[in-house]
Design a protein around this nucleic acid. Structure first.
Lengths: 212, 212
DNA sequence: AGCAATTTTGAATGCTCATTCAATTTCAGC
DNA sequence: GCTGAAATTGAATGAGCATTCAAAATTGCT
């Protein structure tokens, strides 16, 4: 556990403990799944008392939702940032979007553990649905636009919507592969298979990216 | 619930009740997730007594494992069968493999609900790992071989391993899309995006398949 | 129809769980 | 260093859980 030292000041300590609870919850969910996530386990790892969870969060359920919301926010901020610092050519931007999904900040067992745990609960708790759709409308729309620009640039006429769907699915599927077999997962190979796809679509535009 | 009528004969009734428990468990897992799957809920839906679960299965855990094992078996039998009845050209066989994954017998909320529920438990219970990898070695190997044959036939030299990885990931990702948004999911569009990919790789070989 | 073996039942058991809240500790302002 | 407000504690509560097993019901056989 990356436990930052206890800060000074009433409010600061309060927030520090609140964060400890959230971090511990994330860890416990990845370790034990949602079914095995209990307040007892969380407070033991966070090193706070039983009662504190219901002081900071109205209920266990509210805590879980807060964890998910935080994850969703972080993911969105992450890919948006990667897009901001990318060059302006559509190929570079698309490349940045793909690479963002393979960044260790996103592609790691804790983060994916949370996504998969909550997704498995979506049918039971429809309220999670808005938060677990990583590839949500904004990202989808951005990707569609990039493919359209790429078409204009190259004179090709690939169906941008279908391509977006295919690409998103591929990224999603590679996440699943990583989640199930993190030991055997080979990041470069995964990237190579994505860019092989993009390169066949737009010859030369993604040359040398993700070659294995 | 598709409750077949009570059969006659001691052994037959016993097996019929056993099956009712398994079916009810599947339904409850898809409805409530693994976290919300309790013996009480299962036996109520199955219309049997509390005790019967532990008569047929040693424990709740054994019941869950049995459900997963059954799902894994069915999936494997399904794609193997679709491959058996397919034509001999590699393109047809590859097409059969893709279509198998979109067959309603596989792509439905119950089946996917089970996969996703158990996958979310993989870190907590590593024993599930062997059963939740839908796209396991045999299927992967078969796909790689088909891409190799397709290369030989067409004179192209795509990396068969990378292509297999890309295709598997795409299928997996489209499953996820279906699972999260079953209402909006459009099967034909999903197929179209897969075959767009295959068609760009091997021009003409998958013409007219999955066109939207 | 009578009987014994098999199958099924469901109340009882002993856990574990989330949540509560009176009591205790901590701390900023004086 | 005192004081009162704020933050934290953790034992207590009651609900819900998987599992057990003596008793009851069902079945096939004679």
């Amino acid at each position: 556990m990356n436990s930052e030292p206890k800060p000074k000041g009433r409010e600061a300590v309060k927030l520090w403990r609140r964060k400890k609870i959230i971090d511990a919850t994330i860890e416990i969910i990845t370790r034990h799944g949602i079914a095995g996530t209990t307040i007892a386990r969380v407070v033991e790892l966070a090193d706070v008392s039983m009662g504190l969870v219901n002081v900071h969060f109205k209920s266990k359920d509210a805590l879980l939702t807060e964890v998910l919301r935080q994850m969703a926010d972080e993911y969105k901020l992450h890919w948006r940032h990667k897009l901001e610092v990318a060059a302006l050519e559509p190929a570079s931007r698309l490349q940045a979007l793909v690479l963002a999904d393979f960044d260790p900040e996103v592609l790691n067992l804790k983060t994916l553990g949370i996504w998969f745990a909550f997704r498995a609960q979506v049918r039971a708790r429809p309220g999670y649905l808005d938060l677990v759709g990583t590839r949500e409308s904004e990202q989808i729309q951005t990707t569609v636009e990039l493919f359209r620009k790429l078409n204009r640039e190259t004179g090709l006429e690939h169906d941008a919507v279908l391509l977006t769907r295919a690409l998103s699915a591929m990224l999603e599927g590679l996440w699943t592969e990583y989640y199930l077999y993190p030991g055997e997962f080979d990041r470069d190979g995964a990237l190579a298979s994505v860019f092989l796809f993009l390169n066949v679509l737009y010859p030369g535009r993604f040359q040398g990216v993700g070659v294995k």
